[in-house]
């Protein structure tokens, strides 16, 4: 059984959805990033979602854009990224998902990138600007090196296309809670329930909801709506940013927040 199957099966047995906190690799610096990930794990994360920073992240809102800029400025590159993932693997065995842009993989080459990512301990890859029909060599090499494929569906995705996308997914279907870019919202979109319901009618692969999930209340609602995973990004990245601005460690506050979010993923 792979790490994702184990994580989703375990969560189901405990009557929970899987909590999936997100951070940008190397933000605000390599050491501080590892502290963030430790806080996520200690707080009860079931899966980790790690972004590879890109200069032109068209699917990301201002918070994650700034995080990417901090990480690039702090020296994040391919070599450092893979060594950070290896470091994470030394203290946890939960699944690690990578969120990246096509140019990052293309720059190193699909074969080299996928091989190194798998060897470092990455379990899945979501390429934010690569739909399944453009996956080409990248998709082939992900499968060859045992990296699970993750693709996005939204309320704009027609049923037929949802089925097509689900057919290309290995680890989980990433359901965006609302159209637009990443970012923390105060209210959860109503449409996410309908999207989840439509997805359920075309596939039984695990579904994780992201974009705009910022509070334990959101996590509870999404879990109630039947999601197997809850992805929290910008809300946590904002905390990392605030701490970096103040020159303090975000670890304690993050661990506490992740614990609260995790508690909200329990059903019933």
């Amino acid at each position: 059984m792979n790490r994702y199957e184990e994580a989703f099966k375990g969560a189901k047995a405990r009557r929970e959805s899987a909590l999936i906190p997100f951070a940008v690799a190397g933000d605000p610096g390599p050491e501080a990033f590892l502290e963030v990930i430790k806080a996520y794990v200690d707080g009860g994360a079931d899966v980790l979602e790690i972004g590879y920073p890109f200069s032109d992240p068209v699917a990301d809102g201002p918070v994650n854009q700034r995080a990417a800029r901090r990480a690039i400025k702090a020296g994040l590159n391919h070599a450092l990224f893979f060594s950070l993932v290896k470091e994470i693997r030394s203290f946890t065995d939960i699944p690690i998902g990578l969120l990246t842009y096509a140019n990052t993989i293309n720059h190193l080459g699909a074969e080299a990138f996928c091989k190194r990512a798998a060897r470092a301990g990455i379990d899945s890859v979501l390429v934010a600007d690569m739909p399944p029909e453009e996956s080409g060599d990248i998709g082939v090499n992900m499968r060859k090196h045992g990296l699970g494929r993750v693709y996005i569906v939204s309320e704009f995705t027609p049923d037929g296309r949802m089925r097509y996308i689900a057919g290309h997914v290995d680890s989980f279907v990433y359901v965006v809670s609302r159209p637009g870019v990443t970012g923390a919202d105060t209210a959860l979109s109503d449409s996410v329930k309908a999207t989840l319901k439509r997805l359920r009618s075309v596939t039984d692969k695990p579904a994780a909801v992201g974009f705009g999930i910022s509070t334990p209340e959101h996590a509870r609602e999404v879990t109630k709506a039947g999601a197997q995973g809850v992805i929290v990004g910008s809300a946590l990245v904002s905390m990392i940013e605030d701490a970096a601005d103040k020159g303090v460690s975000p670890a304690r506050a993050l661990k506490k927040r992740v614990k609260e979010l995790k508690a909200a993923t329990r059903r019933g």
């Binding site: 068209v58 699917a59 096509a102 934010a128 600007d129 690569m130 739909p131 029909e133 453009e134 693709y151 996005i152 569906v153 939204s154 704009f156 995705t157 027609p158 296309r161 996308i165 965006v176 159209p179 637009g180």
Partner: peptide, 12 residues
């Protein structure tokens, strides 16, 4: 060329 776009844009 190609269509390297976020999924939310694909239907559009």
């Amino acid at each position: 060329g190609g269509m390297f776009a976020p999924e939310t844009l694909m239907p559009a």
